[in-house]
Amino acid sequence: MRRKLKEEYNHVIAGICREKMYLNTHICICDNKRIEVENCKRIMEYNDIYVKIKTSTLILQVWGENIVISDYNMDGIIIEGKISSIEFL
């Protein structure tokens, strides 16, 4: 019981810290042509119609056509192309 409470407490504290230190995943969508994802950890899968990326808090799947990734070395990536759907896992 105590363990569960402790885990929940830690989870809440971690969430607050992540929020205060801007370590949450920030996604900026512009039309259906451009998505900027901050705090991206790695690219799990990628091809020209689908990309799956892992961020600090969740996993993102982006479907579309002519998908192109740009990385400007800022712990984030930019996904460009004709985007048809975004899924959060």
């Binding site: 790695r42 799990m44 002519n66 192109v68 990734i69 740009s70 990385d71 930019i78």
Partner: peptide
């Protein structure tokens, strides 16, 4: 995919990556 991640984790700025 592995190479893209290596690229991503390095300090190299890359753009318009596509497979």
């Amino acid at each position: 995919n592995k190479f893209i991640n290596v690229l991503k984790n390095s300090y190299i700025a890359s753009r318009n990556l596509r497979i």
